[in-house]
Each structure stands twice: as C-alpha cells, then as structure tokens.
Nucleic acid binder design. Structure first.
Lengths: 110, 110
DNA sequence: TATTCGCTTGGCTATAATGCCAAATAACCA
DNA sequence: TGGTTATTTGGCATTATAGCCAAGCGAATA
C-alpha cells in the first residue's frame, strides 16, 4: 500500500469516525433541516451542554460542520449538503442484516 | 429524542464506526474488486495476520462483509455492493476543507 | 499419525474516546 | 460595572479500540 493511498484512507477514515456516533448523527440530521444553535441542539439531545459542544468540535474539526457566532449564540450548519444521501448504503447494510436475521429466525423456528 | 430514533441512530453509528479505520477502508476497497482470502489481504496490508483477522471480524459483525471458508482458507466479500458509492460525500467533505485551507493560505500570504 | 498451513482467539499494553463537573470566556443586559 | 446567558475548555474517571505475540483449531498434506 503506497503512502498516497494510505493518506487518502486516513483522511476518509477521519471523516467517518467523526460521524460514527449516535449523538453526532443526530446533530447531522437536525442540521440537514437548517442551522441550529448549540442550546437548541442540547435541549433536543438531553446531555450536558459541554458534551454537545465537544461533539460539535469533533464535527467541525472533521470538516463536516461550520460554526457562526451571532451575539452570544453559536449557530452550526452542514458544510456539505450531501451528508444524508450518504446513508442509503448504511441502510442497505442494516436491511441486509435484518433479512439474514429473519432467515435465521425462520430456520430455527421463529 | 424518542427510543426508536435513538435505536436507529445507534444502528447507523455502529456501521459507520466499523468502517472508520484506514485498514478497514482498504479492505472494503479491495473487496469491491472481488472476494479475497485473509492471506492476500494480510500481504497487501502488511500487518500481523491476527490484526487483519480482527479487522475482518469488526466488518463481519457490522454486517459489511461475509465470510466463506473453503479448504483451509477463508474468503471475504462485501455483503452490499454500494459501499464505495457512498464515498462521494466523504470526498466532498475533504474537498471542501481543502478549498477553505487553500483560501486561508492565500489570505495569510501562502 | 504428525506436521504444516491458514486463520481465529486470548491476553496484554498503550492509546483514544466519552461524558460529566467545574472553571474560563464572551456577549449581552441592568 | 456587575450579573446573566451561551458556549468552550480543562480535568478526570470510565470504557473502548488497536496491534502485537502466543496459543488454539480445523483442514490439507506427508
């Protein structure tokens, strides 16, 4: 594996890793609907605001979201619009597993 | 956030997390070209075979790959074909960041 | 049967991620 | 100025992940 390919895989992995957390996926879904301030996201998530802030930092550092301070609030939005299309394949994985699971259950007698 | 949504986010996050490692992305890319045995993947990756085997276990448990033992070799293949299409958006994130980085470098005088 | 081959699993250490609390910062308001 | 609100950061304990070596195990071969 050459160095250039390795660098590219590292870069992709960093983006995926930033998305690979339920709270951060929630944030991405909500931001798909439009920008949100930290306070509103925090209210929806129901965790400590410092926890939510750190999740947002992870997303920002991965280049997934942008922040915009207005007054004493910070609004976050998606940097690229496609993030959610992206899930079609994740869903395929989930469905494929569900199907096999159903087949297995049928074999063992429900 | 209701329980059903939480479950769904958890399920998606688990799939993404399984993909979020450079070695596992490499494996996915190689399997896109066709099934491979553990030995060939190990040779390409250049890590200990036990390390590669554990990465494959992560991918299998996430429902991303399937294994097939034939003789004393185990062949792995992708369970769903779309995994790599999936990266268009990851690339957008990376390009978007590169663009901003370039703009920043221009501002500070290269 | 004994040996080798291909792979998985157990065990370990080192490193990273998570989430809370508390403290720091920044903007606004009285 | 002092206080309040919104957010970030530091620090810490807990848990998870990564990768190596060694041991285990089934399948092929001598």
């Amino acid at each position: 594996m050459d160095q250039q390919r390795k660098n590219h895989l590292d870069a992709r992995a960093r983006v995926l890793k930033a998305m690979a957390h339920p709270t951060r996926l929630f944030i991405i879904e909500e931001l798909e609907k439009g920008e949100q301030c930290v306070c509103d996201l925090t209210a929806m998530i129901g965790a400590d605001i410092s926890t939510v802030s750190k999740h947002l930092t992870v997303l920002r550092q991965a280049g997934i979201v942008l922040d915009d301070k207005r007054g004493n609030q910070v609004f976050y939005r998606l940097r690229v619009p496609c993030i959610l299309n992206f899930f079609g394949c994740v869903e395929s994985v989930l469905e494929s597993r569900a199907k096999d699971q159903a087949a297995y259950l049928a074999v063992v007698g429900k």
